[in-house]
Write a protein that binds this DNA or RNA. Structure first.
Length: 573
RNA sequence: UGUCCUGUAGUAUAAAGGUAGUACAGAAGAUUCUGGUUCUUUUAGUCAGGGUUCGAAUCCUUGCGGGACAACCA
């Protein structure tokens, strides 16, 4: 077992979701020679999002838990829509999550020759025919879910004629849309997908893998199940909307295996409910729209629910995996609370993120009784949750910055921070007492004057005097400015895409305050050395990471998620 | 007015005829040189009606609710 496999096995207790139960049963019955092989089958026409992460964790998790494997296969049956740009990003995101597929990435286009042979086989069996009607005519004949369809006039064309016409399709004698190859099943089936579904259409367009070899391409329904079959996939896990396609996939497999020796493995499809997250959108189409219209800063904008967006936001692979674990697997429709994702981020980051001092909304503090030119290097612990992260030194002097909301002139009862005549501990430094305040003409606090008690230095004897609050701070003479980007949810509505029936576009629910930029936050000097995507806890504020678009002159920190804030709750009361 | 899927605390997810549990969210408290973390306590649930059974979230039945399906998309 590789390191990555070990890392990804987050949960030790046995999983009991219905898919595991089905696989257990299959194994018990001795199906597929005891093998378990899953697959992740994206279409390369968009970036992966958190919903795909759920599927990825399921499929690779099954592979891990059953000592099997998981293939990556790009479902590239439509050259009009697909692009290599997406192939690369998809592979990068899967690796980032910590997963490795079996062997080389696979492509549905790898099986175009085989699929073509099977199409010929169906024609010879009298189970497929070439239809020259228009798409509209064929659609009209489908009927509706409550009324049966009518048969195509081409339905009873002879095998020889169909063979000849299909060959003409393949060799480019027809233009796009002129005809199509259809399976001959049952126009009266209560399942719409069994009403003579299309198998092949004509597209005169080069393909990113097969070039100009083909001008006919199989539809997804004729490619997907058989691609799994070709790869020896045992369990084809997919989302609920493909449930009604399953009888068709089984029908195709029955047709191509009929009269053959029983195959060693036969794939079985199992459907589960896709992930929905509140306050966001998950459809590729909508995400693409946000990108194209410049509403967000690309697919990896930290507000996007894409894998690359979460990465840039500061989520760790582990936190995303834990989330996928915790949402569970079932068949009922669900909407997961965004708070669960955030709690997963906090849980991991709490253990790994070094604590640092950063002041986002600074106000000057002067320690009147501290020697003018003196600088002390104070020890502070990097992470109380992880002793191995050790300690570091931070500079302390007469002039500091603290957060503006860590001072109140007329504090309410349970306010534990600095106020006139009040005492407070400066984290890893001294206890100070507020003596006076300077304000500008509008009454805004400009400078807070304090005195310090030299006997209360952290770590010294007698330093354990109780004070009600502890504040973070930075030395005004040593800190540097950085940009900090504070994010809020992208949409104000729990279900932005759910109001289309009432004629409301999802973009009507965009949160105008989803990005707040602080251009001159005050950072402790050590943060100068931060590297792209490094995680930190800004003490008492939240988790942040360094944006990859930072330059040495201008560091940019993204807020991943805030610390729980019980004072904010108290203050609301 | 068809077929298929699905209804368990606010949100998710377990319990395969035998004590309805877990996580997130909420509340109260303890600890804390982060109003973080940690710990304790706590609120809250089987869609409804009938039936089978010693016993039903689970099986049967009738309703009711939610979702999917009619692209030469995947």
């Amino acid at each position: 077992m590789s390191n990555i496999d070990e890392q990804t096995s987050a949960v030790t207790e046995t999983k009991t979701n219905f898919i595991y139960q089905e696989i257990d049963n299959d194994l018990k019955e001795g199906k597929n020679g005891g093998a378990v092989l899953t697959r992740f089958p994206p279409e390369p026409n968009g970036y992966l999002h958190i919903g795909h992460a759920k599927s990825l964790c399921l499929n690779f998790g099954i592979a891990r838990d059953y000592n099997g494997g998981c293939n990556l296969r790009f479902d590239d049956t439509n050259p009009v829509k697909e692009d290599v740009e997406y192939v690369d990003s998809i592979m990068e995101d899967i690796h980032w999550l910590g997963f490795n597929w079996v062997g080389e990435p696979k492509y549905a286009s790898d099986y175009f020759d085989q699929l073509y042979e099977w199409a010929l086989l169906l024609i010879r069996k009298g189970k497929a025919y070439v239809d020259f009607q228009t798409a509209e005519e064929i659609a009209a004949q489908k009927g509706t879910p409550t009324t049966p369809g009518t048969e195509s006039p081409y339905r009873n064309t002879s095998v020889e004629e169909n063979l000849m016409q299909f060959e003409k399709m393949r060799s480019g004698k027809y233009a796009d849309g002129e005809c199509v190859l259809r399976a001959k099943i049952d126009m009266a089936s209560p399942n719409m997908h069994m009403r003579d579904p299309n198998m092949y259409r004509i597209i005169h367009r080069s393909h990113h893998r097969t070039g100009d070899k083909w001008c006919i391409y199989p539809l997804y329904d004729f490619a997907h199940g058989q691609s799994d079959f070709c790869e020896g996939i045992t369990h084809s896990i997919c989302t609920l909307e493909f449930e009604v396609h399953r009888p068709l996939y089984d029908w195709f497999l029955d047709q191509i295996t009929e009269g053959q020796p029983a195959p060693e493995r036969r794939n079985r499809q199992i459907e589960f409910a896709r992930l929905n997250l509140n306050y966001t959108v998950m459809s590729k189409r909508k995400l693409l729209q946000l990108v194209k219209e410049g509403i967000v800063d690309g697919w990896n904008d930290p507000r996007m629910p894409t894998i690359c967006g979460l990465r840039r936001r500061g989520y760790t692979p582990k936190s995303v995996r834990d989330f996928a674990e915790k949402v569970g697997i079932a068949k009922r429709e669900n909407v997961i609370d965004f708070a669960l994702l955030e709690s997963c981020a906090r849980e991991d980051l709490n253990k790994i993120a070094p604590r640092v001092f950063a002041v986002l909304d600074p106000v000057k503090v002067i320690i009147d009784n501290y020697p003018d030119g003196q600088v002390e290097m104070l020890d502070t612990i990097n992470n109380p949750e992880d002793e191995t992260q050790g300690t570091r030194q931070i500079p302390f002097c007469k002039e500091l910055y603290i957060e503006r909301d860590d001072f109140m002139e007329n504090p309410p009862k349970k306010y534990f921070r600095l106020s006139p005549e009040g005492e407070v501990r400066l984290k890893s430094a001294y206890i100070v007492k507020c003596t006076s305040v300077e304000k500008d003409a509008e009454g805004n606090v400009q400078t807070i004057h304090v005195t310090y008690d030299p006997t209360t230095k952290s770590g010294m004897e007698g330093a354990d005097r109780k004070v009600k609050g502890t504040l973070h701070w930075v030395s005004a003479r040593h800190c540097f400015d950085a940009e900090v980007r504070v994010y809020d949810r992208l949409f104000n509505d729990p279900e932005p895409g759910g109001h289309e029936a009432e004629g409301h576009d999802f973009k009507e629910f965009l949160n105008p305050d989803s990005l707040h930029i602080i251009s001159n936050a005050k950072m402790e000097p050590g943060l100068k050395n931060a590297k792209a995507l490094d995680h930190f806890q800004f003490q008492r504020i939240g988790y942040f990471n360094l944006d990859p678009k930072s330059t040495p002159e201008k560091l940019i920190f993204n807020k991943t998620v805030g610390l729980k804030d019980s004072w904010a709750k108290e203050a609301k009361k």
